[in-house]
């Protein structure tokens, strides 16, 4: 077990290292932050050189990368070119809203997907099943920004039920969480359906039936528990994707989150914020996956050989 954990930790370090390389060098291809900062002025060469030196951009690129890595190890993500704030504090301020949005979206997805998936599985082959599957497929067929704008139009502008955008009160969560949740529920309800089907076909359900237990009781007691495992896995694996999936929703709903901050930073060539933000996203994803894998190997010793590794 200890060996397994060590091995996974080693993998996690490699992944974060590779991502640090990718983000560090790719963001430096996008252009010179000094030129962007001076975009409205008439800078002299002297001023450009000063600022370049001040931002540490005059050093050889490998030295810059070395400094970035060295600071990263001590969790120092540097200082934003654009705001003068430490990147850590900027990330800390935005990670909360993003995580809450992701969690709310996940909650909406679960609320929709479980009933739909279970009914689909139990009533397999009926019109209900077809309807449930169509629903889940339609859910993942919307462009998310379009769905968001449509929801704003209908539920904020036309009906006035919820605020159109912003962050703060529980009402502000409704529309963005539904946008995110509808899309997720499409994937999740299929998972629930298939894992329920697996259970329903198994011997012990038939046994339970034969013992005279009412079918819904059986379904809930056995089926639901079984459906939870792939759901947890899905949430684990998708968590990173989920955080990133909030990017566009944050843009549409003016959500003060991490994804929006990173996009703005890319456009402003604010290297430290882009690097820090992406690294933090990667760390979270890797950590969540690690936890999911670990809990898996504890729950189910048969796959301890290394989870996804073979």
């Amino acid at each position: 077990m200890a060996k397994f954990i060590l091995r996974r930790l080693f993998h996690a370090v490699i992944v974060v290292f590779v991502i640090s390389l990718l983000i560090f060098f790719s963001i430096r291809l996008t252009g010179d932050p000094v030129a962007v900062m001076f975009a409205a002025g008439e800078p002299s060469q002297q001023a450009i050189d000063n600022l370049t030196a001040e931002l540490g951009l005059d050093q050889p690129i490998w030295v810059q990368y070395g400094i970035f890595l060295r600071d990263l190890i001590t969790f120092d993500l540097g200082t934003s070119f654009r705001t003068g704030q430490s990147v850590s504090s900027m990330v800390a301020a935005t990670i909360g809203p993003t995580t809450l949005l992701a969690a709310a979206g996940m909650a909406v997805a679960i609320l929709i997907a479980f009933p739909v998936g279970i009914v689909s599985a139990v009533k397999r082959g009926t019109v209900l099943d077809f309807g449930g599957r169509m629903f889940s497929l339609i859910g993942i067929s919307f462009p998310n920004f379009w769905l968001g704008i449509m929801l704003i139009l209908i539920f904020a502008v036309m009906l006035g039920w919820f605020p159109a955008s912003g962050y703060g009160t529980p009402q502000h969560f409704v529309l963005p969480a539904i946008t995110l949740g509808l899309i997720l529920s499409g994937i999740l309800s299929r998972l629930v359906r298939s894992s329920m089907l697996e259970v329903l076909n198994q011997q012990y359900i038939a046994t339970a039936h034969s013992k005279g237990l009412r079918s819904w009781v059986v379904i809930f007691r056995h089926g639901l528990r079984n459906a939870l495992i792939p759901t947890v896995t899905f949430m684990g694996v998708q968590f990173g994707g989920l955080l990133a999936g909030t990017v566009i929703i944050e843009q549409v709903f003016s959500w003060p989150g991490l994804g929006r901050m990173i996009i703005d930073a890319i456009n402003a060539r604010d290297y430290p914020v882009v690097q820090g933000g992406v690294i933090v996203l990667a760390l979270i994803t890797v950590a969540v996956n690690l936890l999911v894998d670990l809990s898996y190997s504890i729950l189910n010793p048969r796959i301890k050989a290394g989870g996804s590794d073979s």
Binding site: I149, I152, L153, A164, S165, G166, V252, S254
Partner: peptide
């Protein structure tokens, strides 16, 4: 701060 113009207008229409 509302970057999307369509969202900004929706906020204006709804009194936000």
């Amino acid at each position: 701060i509302i970057p999307e113009a369509s969202t900004r207008l929706a906020e204006l229409q709804t009194g936000g």
